[in-house]
Amino acid sequence: MAHNAGALDRRDTAWYVDKAVEWLVFIGGISAIIFIVGIFVFIGKEGFGFILGRFDFAEFFFSPRWTPTSLTNATYGALALIVGTASVTGFAMLVSVPFSLGAAIYIAEFATGKRRETLKVLIEMLAAIPSVVWGFIGLSLMNPLIISVFNVPLGLNVLNAGIILGLMAAPIMTTIAEDALKAVPDGYREAAEALGATRWQVIRQVVLPAAKNGLVAAVLLGVGRGFGETMAVLMATGHSINIPSSIFDPVRALTATIATELGETAEGSEHYQALFALGILLFAVTFVINLTADLFVRGIKDK
């Protein structure tokens, strides 16, 4: 019997190589987790120094005075930055959500064949345009356009950045929404059609309700995209600390603040740590948005 057991034991070179590879790809697999934890640790390392020390909750969230470079009285009120990011992202969503969902419905339910493929490729192209190019477009095309159309002195404002950001967030919303619509089983559509419903009735009363979770996820991911955008927002908002009262006011975003100020601060200084604290805020918010969107997407798959 011992002889037989030996024959069945296949621990040759190939077996050891196989085991080694299994470990190697496992390390590759968990690297994503290592990197996410790494991001949190390294940003936290700098940022928590500020949060545990200088940080004042009321000042940070309720004061619009962000004057970290003041020698006598440096204040770290992020309210104007938070409002800046929120107003631009909010306006972008206002413009972009109807168009993105409309385009998704058209691509998933109406368009066929070549036209459908062409639209999808063009939307993918829209997604590929780099953020700094969008910023450049906001600066050199939209800026003069807004000045002449609305007769305002400055074209770098919520309106400009909102439109740019809306276009940047549109591809991800369209793609995810289209996936959600496509995931609705054809049996649902056929059943409704057999009852005499028209195409539009099918879409409105069967497909859209069934795809609801996926559509919510699409919008959430769009919000996350807009919220974290840096270069385009930096170049198109006007970048001045301001609580906007209209869409023609310039604002300043959280991301853009880090991008412009990090280069000017001394490593380890209070200002430097405060910028990392803004980073923690950005990381936390996008983390929650992504997690929620994922739960909504999983909701459709489990059904």
Binding site: F35, I43, K45, M231, T255, F287
Partner: peptide, 23 residues
């Protein structure tokens, strides 16, 4: 792992920059 991948893609680019500086 899948959640981490989604988040790596979703974290703002400027946060990646902060990580790059720190790490």
């Amino acid at each position: 792992i899948n959640l981490a991948i989604i988040n790596l893609a979703g974290v703002p680019s400027i946060v990646h920059a902060l990580f790059g500086v720190g790490a």
